[in-house]
Design a protein around this nucleic acid. Sequence first.
DNA 1: TGACAAAAGAGAATTATTATCCTTCAATAG
DNA 2: CTATTGAAGGATAATAATTCTCTTTTGTCA
Lengths: 147, 147
Amino acid sequence: MEHFRARCAALGLAYTHQRMVIYRALAGTDAHPTPEAVYEQVKREIPAISLGTVYKNIHTFTEAGLLREVNLLHESLRLDANLGNHHHFVCVRCKSVTDIPERDIGPLHLRQPLPEGYVLQRAVAELLGVCARCAGSEDVISTASSQ
Amino acid sequence: MEHFRARCAALGLAYTHQRMVIYRALAGTDAHPTPEAVYEQVKREIPAISLGTVYKNIHTFTEAGLLREVNLLHESLRLDANLGNHHHFVCVRCKSVTDIPERDIGPLHLRQPLPEGYVLQRAVAELLGVCARCAGSEDVISTASSQ
DNA sequence: TGACAAAAGAGAATTATTATCCTTCAATAG
DNA sequence: CTATTGAAGGATAATAATTCTCTTTTGTCA
Ligand SMILES: [Mn+2]
Ligand SMILES: [Mn+2]
Ligand SMILES: [Zn+2]
Ligand SMILES: [Zn+2]
């Protein structure tokens, strides 16, 4: 766990006390906190830390692969008038959402019960990847000058 | 599709031209638009419509069950330092996210190929429901559709 | 048709996030 | 062990998304 200094070095990131405490706040919980929650936690140890520093490091860590975003689509509300059961493919590049018919994926059955007291209403698969348009127009290969 | 007037009546909602056009913009696409995108679409037909009206009706429709939010966690970025493969249970009440071990759910294998050109990177299950704390603390007996 | 609650429009306010600008500091070469 | 320097931090302004407040208009129903 205290390889953090080495991991920063390996990633070409400067090691700072702020980074260490921010990362520790995240790695030390199984909740899925907001930047604000991380900020509140870190402030207990570094009262003078800036919220901007928390945001900046969250992005740095995410780009470096030390963290993941739970919700790729958090930037804005996204709506769906299709009320039937179906799954979603989300493009990590353009954030487009494509419906996937329910029958295209095996039923999401629970092999183990949920934690005590939890009540399940619905289960959907979220497929993450790159959509056709983004895959075709990117640095994958410069064969495309379409669109 | 033009039962919309009747559906409004059944839901106790006043029928307005704005509502009809907003709903039509949503029901007429398989994209998963933002409120802004809906607003832009609707403005073509009702140039004087207010963005607030779009937001208000989106909420009204969602509460009425005519629409769904794609992203329950859009209010703020949520972070995860657990890089291993696992699934998530999201509480529709308190928005808490609980890790579900990958082995607790059958592998999400695709029975049909993705649309041409799509590249899959990762697949996760999102279980929606009510967490133990929320289920235990409220009149959650009718957990079908509340928020 | 008239009364009234609901809905729409305008714009201010709030919240989440990002950008800017200046200061401080970690890394590293000498 | 310094000096240099670009990266990182802190303060705060700016932006984007969403909600709130207030006033006017409109749909519903008697
Ligand atoms: Mn959908
Ligand atoms: Mn997780
Ligand atoms: Zn894409
Ligand atoms: Zn809950």
